[in-house]
Simulated assay, not measured.
Amino acid sequence: MGKTADLTAVQKAIIDTLKQEGGRITREDLMNYTAVSNDYALKFTLGNYTFYVPDAPFGGPVLALMLNILEGYNLTNRSVSTIEMKTLTYHRMIEAFRLANAQKSELGDPHYENIAEIVKNMISVGFADNMRSTIKDDTTKQDRYDVKSVCDGHGTTHLSVIAEDGSAVAVTSSINNYFGSGVMSPSTGIIFNDQMCDFSDPKSVINGANKNNLIKPGKRPLSSKSPTIIVDKQSNQVKMVVGGAGGTNITTSTAQVILNYLFFDYNLHKAVEEPRVQVPINVTNVEEVFDEEVAKRLRLKNHTIDNKTEETSIQVVVRQKNEICAASDYRNYGYPAGY
C-alpha cells in the first residue's frame, strides 16, 4: 500500500507541475504508459563485422543505410591517403549521408506507423546499391534534399561499455535540450524533457515526407540516437561499442568514427578527433580545423561549404587484440574510465 501511495503522490506531483506550466498530461496518461522494449536489435553485416543498432524511431536504420551505401566503394586507408582520394571519399560520404537522411523522413514510431518495409529497405544491401548508383563523383545533389531538421539537442548523454566478461552495452539517454523543457517538479526534483519538439510540424509534410512523424498520443518521435555494438564475425567477440550525444548530428558523427577506425585504419584517438563533416539542408558544414584543400576541392564539386563547430560528442570503446581501449570526445571534455 505504501508503494501505491508513493506512486500516486509522484503522479500527482507530475500532473500538478505540468498543468501549472500549461501542460495537458493526465493521470490516465501516466497509468496507461508502458515502456517499449524490443527483444532484438536491428542487425546488419558490413565486411568482417556484424552491427547491432536500435530500430526506428531511432537512428539505427539511417546509420545502416549510410554505411551500406559507402561499403560499395571498398573504403580502406588508401581512400584517404592523398588529397585527391580524400576529397572523393568525403564527397561520397556527404552524398551517402544526404541520401540516408532523406530516407529518415519516411520513418516514425513502428508501433503507430506501418514502416516495416521502409526499415527493411534501409538495412538491405540491394536498396543501398540503388542509392549509391544515384551518386555522381563530380557534383553534389545537396539542393535536392529537403529534410525537416528536428530541434538541436544538448541534453543527451552516451555511455559505451565493454565488460570484463566480454559483454557490451551502448546506451544513449536524452531530455533533449539543456535542462529539458526547463520545468522541474519542486517536490520530486524531476526535470521534464523536451522531446515534443522532435515531432514533425504538419506544415513540413510535403509530398508525404515527415508524415510518419506527426504527433499522436503515446507516440515516440524520431531521434538521431544511434548506440551501436559491432561484433567481429570471425572471433564472435565485441570489436567496438560506439555512440554519441549532440542532436541531429549523432548518426553522421557515429558513422564517421566507425569509418575512421574500422575502414581508414586510424588509431582510436584520431578516429574520434578527426575533423568531421555534417549535412544540414543545402549546405555542408565542416569544422574549422577541417583540411582546407579538401574543402576547396569539395567546392569545385558544387558543395556549399560552411565552417561550424561540431557539437556531437562520441564515446567509443574497442577491443584491440587482448586489450580494451577507450576514447572520449575532446569536443565535450569527456574522458574514458576503467575499472
Rank of each mutant, 00 (worst) to 15 (best):
Q103M: 08
L262F: 06
I250T: 01
I281M: 14
M122V: 05
S328T: 00
T309I: 09
E274R: 10
C151E: 11
M196F: 15
S253H: 00
I250E: 01
Q278R: 14
A5S: 11
S160W: 08
F127H: 14
A96L: 04
V289M: 06
A100Q: 09
Y40E: 14
D39R: 09
M66Y: 06
D152W: 05
L222M: 15
E323K: 15
I229S: 06
N285R: 11
E117N: 13
N260E: 04
T45Y: 08
N282W: 05
S105H: 04
M1H: 11
D39L: 12
V205A: 02
L42I: 05
L65G: 01
C325G: 02
K301I: 10
R92T: 03
D129P: 02
G126P: 05
I83D: 11
M131Q: 15
P186D: 03
N302W: 04
A5W: 06
F127D: 02
N302Y: 13
T76P: 01
A100Y: 05
S174C: 03
K216G: 04
N177H: 07
N332P: 01
E21H: 15
I250Y: 03
T284K: 00
K270Q: 14
K104E: 14
A9I: 15
V150P: 00
G23W: 02
A128V: 12
